[in-house]
Each structure stands twice: as structure tokens, then as C-alpha cells.
Design a protein around this nucleic acid. Structure first.
Length: 208
DNA sequence: CTCCCGATAT
DNA sequence: ATATCAGGAG
């Protein structure tokens, strides 16, 4: 599986999807909040709770001063709500305290913040700063990368290293968006629609 | 490795 | 009834 195949896959997917984030947000910190909420939860479900959430908490200071019980109530339907509420409040406080309220633009600084891991940090860098220090590896990218044959690893950090080795850096951000779209629409976790798959000929499973 | 955890599809 | 969803911490 070389870089030439990767380019073909990316070009084929570009004809099907617009490489774009599906989370609804207006400010940088709203994006950060949405990404934390999206852990083990669909973007659709996140977009259902954020309008009321961002109405109550207007900015990073509001989130830093939020009452956990109130925050939990508003994000409950996204699951893991106690952890997520703490993560959001903590991220707001740490960014105000250590970064003067501005979200860091380096992955090492982002992942130091409790509640922000490698996947969340990669999304934040891509969305806010159009910058890629790594590649987003979420559940879709993990699944599709394995099925297509881009990696034999199952640990996200190792998958990320494998992907960085074969994907030209200028495609890192689009690659993640495109694979996630294809994962949602065709290459589903439970019942993949291989008969409708437009990149089947590049896939190691090739319809199975 | 386990725990966190609600909504939806199968 | 069970698997899955733009995961992360201990």
C-alpha cells in the first residue's frame, strides 16, 4: 500500500464528500467544547445540545465558572456527561490560567490539558489553526484504515504513526474528514455497504 | 486493562 | 439484547 494508492483513494472520496467538520460552532472554544462532547457520541447528538449550551455559556470564562451540576444537565444526552463536564470546565480554567485564554496551537500543550487527548488535540489543530502535527484517529479512521489495509495495528497511536508514514502531509486533514464521511455513509461498523463502496477496488477486504 | 454513560441502529 | 458513536483518564 503506497502513496500512489492513497492519493487515488483520497481523490475518489473527494468526489463524494466535502472534507468538512460536521460539528456546529462559531468560536474556537465552542469547537473545543464540541470535540470533547463528541467522544463516543455522534456529531448529530452533539449538535443537538450545543445551541442551548452556548446560549447559557457565552465564552471561555463562563465555562470556567460553570457549576458542574448545571453543565452536566445540559450535556447529559451526549453520554459520559460527568467526565465531559469536568473536562470542559478544566480545559477552560487551564487555558485561561496558562495560555491567557487563547487555545494553544501545539499538540504537546493541548494534550497536557486534562480531558484533551491526541484525537481531540488533532481535531482542534486542524479546525482552528488548519495545522496538522498528526492525524486524527477516531473510531471511523481506526476501522477504515484497518479494513482498507493501511495498518495492521489496533492501537490508535500506532495507527496514527502508520498513517503518517504513507499519507502525504498535505492530505492529513482532508484524509480524516473524508474517511469519517465514508465511514458514516458506506463503510459502517456493523453492516458495511460494500456493494455501494466507490473505493472497493483499493480495499484489502474488497467487498467483504 | 477498566471505567465513564446516553441515544440510536440492528 | 447488543453494538456503536469524531475518546480519555487512572
Amino acid at each position: 500500500m503506497g502513496k500512489i494508492i492513497l492519493t487515488k483513494i483520497i481523490n475518489a472520496l473527494k468526489k463524494l464528500y466535502i472534507p468538512k467538520c460536521a460539528l456546529n460552532y462559531k468560536t474556537d472554544f465552542q469547537l473545543l467544547v464540541s470535540v470533547i462532547l463528541s467522544a463516543q457520541c455522534t456529531d448529530k447528538q452533539v449538535n443537538l445540545v450545543t445551541p442551548k449550551l452556548f446560549e447559557k455559556y457565552k465564552n471561555i470564562n463562563d465555562f470556567a465558572n460553570a457549576k458542574l451540576s448545571e453543565l452536566e444537565k445540559l450535556i447529559k444526552s451526549t453520554g459520559f456527561y460527568k467526565n465531559k463536564a469536568k473536562s470542559i470546565k478544566n480545559a477552560a480554567s487551564e487555558i485561561i490560567k496558562n495560555y491567557n485564554g487563547k487555545i494553544p496551537d501545539k499538540i504537546d500543550e493541548l494534550t497536557k490539558i486534562s480531558g484533551i487527548g491526541r484525537k481531540t488535540a488533532n481535531v482542534i489543530l486542524a479546525e482552528i489553526y488548519q495545522k496538522a502535527e498528526g492525524i486524527v484517529v477516531d473510531t471511523h479512521i481506526k476501522r477504515l484504515s484497518y479494513r482498507i489495509g493501511l495498518t495492521k495495528n489496533t492501537i490508535p497511536e500506532k495507527i496514527e504513526i502508520d498513517l503518517m508514514a504513507v499519507i502525504p502531509k498535505k492530505y492529513w486533514i482532508d484524509f480524516a474528514h473524508l474517511l469519517i464521511s465514508h465511514g458514516r455513509n458506506i463503510c459502517k461498523a456493523r453492516k458495511p455497504l460494500c456493494g455501494k463502496c466507490q473505493i472497493k477496488k483499493y480495499c484489502q477486504k474488497n467487498g467483504l
